[in-house]
Amino acid sequence: MSIHRLIREGRRRLGMSEQQFADAVGVSRGAVQQWEKAGGTAPKRANQPRVAELLGISVGELLSGGPNISQGTVMRAEVPLVSEVEAGNYTVIDNFKPRGNFETVPVTVPVKRHTYALRVHGDSMASEMGDSFPEGSIIVVEPDLEVLPGDYVIALNEHAQTTFKQLVRDGGEFYLRPLNPRYPIKPLGVARVIGVVREFSKRFR
């Protein structure tokens, strides 16, 4: 895919007009029209990071025509922050399915239409070594991604309660593993995985 088509299709997926995209980058509408026109000019080096950020890709992917994005993937810079997820025991997530007006958080990876973000509550996924998700972390969850052992996941039990853990496999059985050694590993049992964590960030205020 050419850089011109990548920008044009990415802007349209974001639901932004040429002027809105131009304002977001800090350039004129004419510049955006040049970027999107076959045979037109490409974004200047100073503008490339912001263009890539808006499209949810890296600068390298922007210049090379984009990543290999599967069908249904949406290139966008933000996803809705829908609620909190308990990182200890199972808990109910209010407003679990995104609807209405939500606070949004930025993402740096291509995501699908139903991707959303959750705020971590509790310390069972906090660790002093390796990966750590302290309380207040924002996790970006992809509900349509294939689940593999080792993934960080959102699991839903038979009481419609959710928890955030690492999915591990041992002896043919699946378990939900906390990163904090003070918490026990629990069998997945009849619970099911409803989302895979793609990205996370820490919010301090």
Results as ranks from 00 to 15, higher is better:
residue 36 E to Y: 15
residue 114 H to S: 12
residue 2 S to E: 05
residue 153 V to K: 08
residue 175 Y to K: 00
residue 93 I to F: 13
residue 24 A to S: 13
residue 189 G to H: 10
residue 140 V to F: 03
residue 76 R to Y: 09
residue 88 G to W: 13
residue 159 H to Y: 10
residue 123 D to S: 12
residue 7 I to W: 04
residue 28 S to R: 13
residue 111 V to S: 03
residue 72 G to P: 03
residue 101 N to M: 15
residue 48 Q to A: 13
residue 197 V to M: 11
residue 173 E to I: 09
residue 68 N to Q: 12
residue 3 I to Q: 05
residue 40 G to T: 02
residue 106 P to V: 03
residue 90 Y to G: 00
residue 75 M to W: 06
residue 161 Q to W: 06
residue 195 G to I: 08
residue 114 H to D: 12
residue 30 G to L: 13
residue 195 G to R: 04
residue 185 I to P: 00
residue 73 T to V: 11
residue 118 L to F: 06
residue 47 N to S: 14
residue 189 G to R: 09
residue 148 L to H: 14
residue 150 G to H: 05
residue 106 P to G: 07
residue 49 P to H: 12
residue 168 V to H: 03
residue 167 L to Y: 06
residue 145 L to A: 11
residue 176 L to P: 00
residue 93 I to T: 05
residue 63 L to I: 07
residue 136 G to Q: 04
residue 21 F to Y: 15
residue 136 G to A: 11
residue 90 Y to F: 15
residue 97 K to C: 06
residue 147 V to N: 01
residue 64 S to H: 08
residue 198 R to E: 09
residue 185 I to K: 08
residue 102 F to C: 14
residue 72 G to K: 02
residue 169 R to Q: 11
residue 50 R to E: 09
residue 191 A to S: 05
residue 58 S to H: 02
residue 55 L to P: 07
residue 2 S to P: 02
residue 175 Y to H: 00
residue 193 V to A: 00
residue 150 G to W: 05
residue 184 P to C: 01
residue 135 E to C: 13
residue 170 D to P: 05
residue 93 I to H: 10
residue 165 K to I: 01
residue 170 D to H: 15
residue 139 I to V: 10
residue 136 G to T: 04
residue 149 P to K: 06
residue 123 D to C: 06
residue 61 E to A: 14
residue 19 Q to S: 15
residue 160 A to W: 12
residue 53 E to S: 15
residue 178 P to H: 05
residue 117 A to E: 03
residue 43 P to Y: 11
residue 75 M to D: 00
residue 194 I to W: 04
residue 27 V to R: 10
residue 6 L to D: 01
residue 118 L to C: 07
residue 74 V to N: 04
residue 85 V to H: 08
residue 152 Y to S: 04
residue 117 A to I: 01
residue 151 D to S: 09
residue 126 A to F: 09
residue 108 T to G: 13
residue 168 V to K: 08
residue 137 S to Y: 08
residue 2 S to M: 05
residue 164 F to C: 01
residue 29 R to K: 15
residue 205 R to K: 12
residue 124 S to A: 14
residue 164 F to P: 00
residue 144 D to C: 09
residue 31 A to T: 12
residue 157 N to Y: 01
residue 55 L to V: 07
residue 64 S to N: 06
residue 163 T to G: 08
residue 115 T to P: 05
residue 33 Q to R: 15
residue 92 V to A: 10
residue 161 Q to G: 07
residue 34 Q to M: 11
residue 182 R to N: 07
residue 72 G to R: 10
residue 54 L to E: 05
residue 78 E to S: 12
residue 110 P to C: 11
residue 14 L to K: 14
residue 155 A to S: 07
residue 204 F to C: 01
residue 42 A to V: 08
residue 179 L to I: 02
residue 30 G to C: 11
residue 204 F to N: 03
residue 19 Q to K: 15
residue 170 D to N: 14
residue 85 V to L: 06
residue 68 N to T: 07
residue 76 R to W: 04
residue 9 E to W: 08
residue 139 I to Y: 02
residue 3 I to D: 01
residue 8 R to H: 10
residue 199 E to V: 04
residue 172 G to T: 00
residue 156 L to K: 13
residue 99 R to M: 13
residue 52 A to D: 07
residue 130 G to R: 03
residue 49 P to D: 08
residue 53 E to I: 11
residue 13 R to G: 14
residue 10 G to W: 12
residue 128 E to T: 09
residue 50 R to Y: 09
residue 123 D to F: 13
